[in-house]
Design a binder for these strands. Structure first.
Ligand code: MN
Ligand code: MN
Ligand code: MN
Ligand code: MN
Lengths: 218, 218
DNA sequence: AAAAATTTTTAGATTAGACTAAATGGTATA
DNA sequence: TATACCATTTAGTCTAATCTAAAAATTTTT
């Protein structure tokens, strides 16, 4: 049984290892969790002891198979709760993440099974992220960042890679949502910003940072 | 902001003070929480420091107005979650308490407001206990324990005073539920047990302990 | 390849919350 | 009123999770 803190470390490390593919550094973990490297060293020793991570001094950590399974269950709970908050309790997509950070640590297999059933087995959460099933299996839709799309193309928003309220409220403001159509009008070489039209309506300039966090498909 | 442990102590102390009316002893708290008296002394010092309890050495504690308000909010959350689990996720009434013990500590005023709305502002939880509103107000139905009812009377079950799975499963077995009709057939002076008929069907003997934990109205 | 810079680990301290054992206060009883 | 008994508090220890400062390992620069 993992503690809240252990689950939070595991989740962060799992996400980092997915992004990079390589072993995860102490500092990278400290940065994403807003803790100090010394605290991370302590915790990764504890998690290695539990067989969740494999770890060699000064060489970073890797998530074990057992760790991967555990991480996916926490992610499953996080995303199911986010879906519940939006679908049933009428939360906006920018209001759910912090509450889900708490709810994801509730321990009750029955609760999660019933919640999943109540939501009719959703496959994606309000941010377009896939929800793993009880066995940790999930399917991501093929998708690329808007930043990599050529001028002239029309694409559909599939997911957002940042679930901070600031980013999501900005997307609300420019009329972007999961399923919205985005037409690429122009690319500015200088700073990588783009001119796009959303749902055949508003035409806006979006920064490189924004275009990297909106993922789309044809 | 109270920690999980602080909220659990507060809730236990509040319930004890409601039962007895008087100031609550260190040992009574230790007993209900399955901790040691020394741990309780530590915690009640901390809670006094926060203005939640008033405390004089060797004289027990009392819950302050601030403490009462906080306790009722935790109780509100506990009972709303129990109601959610039964009404929406099809939990049986004996399965909800332990999960609600976890869920009651989630911090999000919006979540609780929306949950209350989603459940259509329920007044009573699955065990017949009243659910305080946002201001801590609630109305209990007039009720007495079956043990105090005279032979020959017919009464309706309003609440149960014990929410352990063991007790609730026993009630399921003898066909008793909130709203069930109980007719008092006989009282045994020797051990205080009673013979009762439930919903004009099953006739059973219930122990004094059971009859004290089923509360009823005419 | 040596020096410098950076990353990581270790050592030691702190806080919340728990425990055991010992000391102390309060109450009942002879 | 002295003694015994029980309740409560204090003192000291432990673990999880955090921190700072210092030491050690690794990586980058010269
Ligand atoms: Mn999230
Ligand atoms: Mn999400
Ligand atoms: Mn309960
Ligand atoms: Mn209840």
């Amino acid at each position: 049984m993992l503690s809240f803190a252990e689950e939070n470390y595991l989740k962060a490390i799992y996400h980092l290892s997915e992004q990079t593919g390589e072993s995860v550094s102490t500092n990278a973990i400290a940065d994403t969790l807003n803790t100090k490297a010394a605290s991370v060293t302590d915790m990764i020793k504890r998690l290695s002891g539990k067989g969740i991570l494999s770890y060699q001094k000064y060489k970073g950590v890797q998530v074990s198979e057992k760790g991967r399974k555990a991480a996916l269950q926490v992610i499953r709970k996080h995303r199911l709760w986010e879906t519940f908050l939006v679908e049933k309790l009428k939360f906006n997509w920018d209001e759910v993440h912090d509450v889900a950070e708490q709810l994801e640590h509730i321990k009750s297999p029955l609760l999660i099974r019933r919640l999943d059933e109540f939501l009719a087995y959703p496959k994606y959460d309000p941010h377009g992220d896939p929800i793993p099933d009880e066995n940790g299996e999930y399917k991501s839709k093929p998708q690329v960042p808007v930043s990599s799309c050529d001028v002239g193309r029309s694409v559909i928003v599939v997911s957002v890679q940042d679930d901070s309220p600031e980013f999501l409220q900005y997307l609300d403001k420019i009329g972007t949502y999961i399923g919205a159509k985005i037409r690429i009008l122009d690319k500015v070489g200088f700073d990588g910003s783009m001119e796009v039209q959303i749902d055949n309506k508003k035409t806006v300039f979006i920064s490189r940072e924004v275009s990297e966090n909106i993922w789309v498909t044809d």
